[in-house]
Design a protein around this nucleic acid. Sequence first.
RNA 1: GGAGAGGUGGCCGAGAGGCUGAAGGCGCUGGUUUGCUAAACCAGUAUACGGCCCAAAGCUGUAUCGAGGGUUCGAAUCCCUCCCUCUCCGCCA
Length: 430
Amino acid sequence: MLDLRFVVANLDHVKAALARRGAHASAALVSVEAEAHVRKELIVKSETLRAEQKKQSDAMKTLRGEAQAELRTKLKAMADEVKALDTTLREVEARIEAALLSVPNLPHPSVPDGQSEHDNVVQGPRNFGAAPTFAFAPKDHVALGEGLGLLDFERAAKISGARFAVLKGDLARLERAVLTFFLDVARERGYTEVLTPYLVNQASLRGTGQLPKFEADLFKTTVEPPLYLIPTAEVPVTNLHRDEILGDPNSPPIGTKYACFSPCFRSEAGSAGKDTRGLIRMHQFHKVELVRFETPEDSQEALEQLTTDAQEPLKRLGLHHRVVALCAGDMGANAEKTYDLEVWLPGQSAFREISSCSSFGDYQARRAQIRFRPSATEKPKLAHTLNGSGLAVGRTVVAILENYQQADGSVVIPEALRPYLGGLEKLTKV
RNA sequence: GGAGAGGUGGCCGAGAGGCUGAAGGCGCUGGUUUGCUAAACCAGUAUACGGCCCAAAGCUGUAUCGAGGGUUCGAAUCCCUCCCUCUCCGCCA
């Protein structure tokens, strides 16, 4: 959420920045300026009146009889008026809040212009490796997994439905090895591992910006009050410090970095009919998420580091990938700047997203009230939040299958993972 | 799920309709004293949203005692609903 005062004071600048995202990004702002003025007037009126009411009600203590009754009538009228003003004020504030909640974040000035994924900018120097060459026609991961007898979509459909998968044997072990490997790499790089709930309340989803706009993407349970399955560990981990001041006695310092493994649940995945085959787009998948809390001064540098941190496991697995800066029109609504990591999939002859690393400025922190104290004497300021996948586990397994496949349909396990698999070197047909 | 006890500032803990943004203590910050450290003493020590001010500083208003509603001229204090914590019972990996 953007800051109301900032928006009102810099309306033209805000509109221009939002226009980079597309024509309608600032639509909700049309009435905000006028409503903000009304809001202030109501606050002044109500508070002045209440102050007067409080002052006069002191006399109630000493007055008796007729005089007291008279004053009570007068004060009652004032109290009623204050109530009426406050009711109107709440309505106005609710409209402002609703408008502001639907306004996306302002793209960072360094974000490239553009409307769609075609305008994203590949960060050449950060790319890694080269596409492997094959002396045979490479298969996709579905053919490989099913051919090995380790991947079962049919039974997954029976027990759950479309867009679920069952992994078996060494492939299931591989998935588990990959996620452990990711957590170990993150720990080496200074991230504290956390394990959080997979069901969260509405306040948490509002804090990170999934609600109210993206309810349709979420799985919602029927308990009251509702709990939602997390679409990413970003939600529980960022909300770890909701309504906290980082650096205070019971909170970690600003600059804290977390790594969190979790399953992720997405209801709308696949509604567009994309990627109907295989493990790429699922209702449930595993991910290790990296989350950072930084000062405004450090957050852009932190995004560069975060992206490098997310690349590290891909490098150790020897997987060819590139880094792409998303253009203003392709970024998620909450993000200020985003780098995607795209891994090469020989089965598709294409790069596919395997990580998305974003800085959010104070957009999430304002909703979630995550602050830090610049120094012992200064007032708390909103922190900057960042997160990125480090990495999507299922898609990594896909990449391993496709990049390390052999002519006979077996798959070589990358060296870095073998210690996690008791030295296993190959996936072979069972 | 059932029964009971609770939720007050960074922490502990008083308060039981107006004098309470909230006693007292601890902690923290600054100062005085002081060979150093410690101790003692003095002062300060929340957040949000407004107003005055070119701005900062400062002054000032309002709100906040788990959350939300209600009663009242006036609520930390009374009533209702919800959330959370603890103890016991039940259930359970």
